[in-house]
Amino acid sequence: MPDTSAGLPDLRQAAAVLFDLDGVLTPTAEVHMHAWQAVFDQVFTLWGITPPYTDEDYFAYVDGKKRYDGVASLLRSRNVEIPWGTVGDDPEADTVCGIGNRKNVAFSEALRRDGIAPYPGSLALIEQLRSAGVPLAVVSSSKNAEEVLASAGIRDFFTVVVDGVVAEREQLASKPAADVFRVAAERIGVDPADAVAVEDATSGVASAAAAGYGTVVGVDRGAGSEALLANGATVVVDDLDRFLP
């Protein structure tokens, strides 16, 4: 893929560009982080779990994964094992699914209350790519992806959305497994080697790399440039406006 004058790949030449959502297109990662913090603070206090939950835990164990996988991974880091439960568990249930559902209630309440807008640089890039005729997709672990895309006013940019709902229905493994990025490439009709994946999570860049994407862009919103590169990013930027002419 040709380089831009800044030494970055020209995404307008890609066969397709597939974006993660939270933290890449919209600042919903911050809303997710606050919701997780509130839920895990409550759980850790009630159960006497130490050390306390931190932002570093979010990036290490939760970010980019399907909701229930994130809960299980975080608790496992504290040597805590609880029943998995079922997706229909009450949000107050002391199960992996119950805790995940509790977090989703907190997230949905915040989204409906405050709304969301895309990052300006991300919006400018997808506008440019659509004008250039580049197929665009969203590959997100969130079950709220459709709601977030609609709230941000950008749903119509994307011909394919593979999200947490699709992953659960089709039993696709959570990032960092290759499944969701592989399936999204199939549905948009491209060879991953000719496509670009854009991610802000270490699990996300690892997923895209495992699926064979030729270019994996890491957007450093807090995970750290070195961690993104170590997990599969081929280039790291601090904002997607870096790809604008």
Score class of each variant (00 low, 15 high):
Q13F: 13
V62K: 13
D22S: 03
N79H: 14
D10T: 12
N104F: 02
H34V: 01
Q37P: 00
D55I: 02
P83R: 02
A93E: 05
L111N: 15
R76L: 15
Y58N: 08
R76K: 12
M33S: 11
N104S: 03
S77G: 11
V71T: 05
A60V: 06
R76V: 10
Y119D: 02
S73T: 06
G48A: 06
Q13Y: 11
T45K: 15
A60E: 09
R102H: 10
L75V: 00
F19W: 06
E109I: 05
E109W: 10
P52K: 07
G88A: 10
L21I: 00
G23N: 04
V31N: 13
G23E: 04
G85I: 09
A117Q: 12
R12L: 12
R112T: 12
L18H: 09
P27C: 07
G88Y: 03
V39R: 13
F19H: 05
G23W: 00
P27L: 06
T54R: 14
I99R: 14
S108N: 12
R112C: 14
P83D: 12
S122A: 14
P27S: 03
A38W: 04
E109V: 11
W36Y: 10
E30K: 06
A110W: 02
N79W: 13
R12M: 15
T26L: 00
H32N: 11
S122R: 05
G85K: 12
K103G: 08
R102L: 10
I99H: 15
Y58M: 06
D22M: 00
K65C: 04
A14W: 10
V71C: 09
Y119H: 07
A16L: 00
L11A: 14
S77C: 09
Q42Y: 14
H34K: 03
D41C: 06
V80Q: 08
S122D: 00
D94Y: 01
G121F: 09
A93G: 07
A106K: 08
F44N: 11
S73K: 03
S73Y: 04
A60Y: 05
P51K: 07
F107C: 09
D94F: 00
L123D: 03
A15I: 02
A15G: 06
Y61N: 02
Q13T: 14
F19T: 09
F40R: 08
T86W: 01
C97R: 00
I116T: 15
G98S: 11
V80K: 01
L11I: 12
A35D: 07
V80H: 02
P120Q: 01
G121K: 03
N101E: 11
T45V: 12
N104M: 03
D57S: 00
L18E: 07
P51S: 02
S77T: 10
G121D: 08
R78D: 13
